[in-house]
Amino acid sequence: MKKTILLLFVLLTANQIFAQKFKIKGSDTELPLTQNEAEEYMKRNKNANLMVTGGGSGVGLSALLNGTTDIAQASRSLRMDEKLKLKNEGKGYKEVIIAYDAIAVIVHPSNKVSQLTREQLEDIYTGKITNWKDVGGENLKIIAYSRETSSGTFEFFKEHVLNKKNFAPTTLLMPATGAIVQSVSQTRGAVGYIGLGYLEKTVKAVQVSNDKGLTFVAPSVVSAKNNSYPISRPLYYYYLTSVENTVSSYIKFVLSPAGQQIVLKSGYVPIK
């Protein structure tokens, strides 16, 4: 009996030693995608052991800087100060784009407005436009919904749509993307923004223009892929060159057709 336990113990520890083990941490937007990818990867490679956690892009990148994660998942690229820090510490890094994410602007299904320019969105969210009739709709007050300040989507929207201006204080901040969909679907004057993967039939996505109204593009996998949809962003993996050997086969898998199929299934936009 004792021998069996000992043998089992040896086998288990041996498994641990030979296992391919690493951590992925960061963006909550990417979390569901990475979880699906990691699950499939572990199914194919029995001795792989991946730990995937969220926390936000900033959390993941700072974990990469102080060495507590192997891959940082980020929905934004490295900031200049982070680059400088890596440079100061003499660490080389690799950046891989694994997928794209489009941010859909949604309104109540009964809303007649189906096109908005980026400038109009900025004015709506900074409180300069407060009525739908100013953007071609009916005489109805605009209720702007946003995510909480901790969200990476919030940061992205602020930087790329609001031109780094602050949201109007009257903006309603919802604790989750699902709550935005729920609220927009039951509020006639509502406008909100969500990841493409969360788009449902209970709300209407508007077409967005980034050239002052010349062309309007609807959010979709296709328009995000050919870069014609203005509010889309790449999703990154960052890792240090020192761990390249450990993580490269996983990265290869994510970029492979099978991995990109998972990207599509999870509601994101494949890179090819």
Binding site: E148, A168, P169, T170, T171, L172, L173, M174, P175, A179
Partner: peptide
């Protein structure tokens, strides 16, 4: 409260407006 008051950070003295 987090789920039903809308969490907008403007100063509001009305019962029929969002608050935080």
């Amino acid at each position: 409260v987090l789920m039903v008051t809308g969490n907008s950070t403007h100063v509001n003295y009305s019962f029929l407006q969002p608050t935080r």
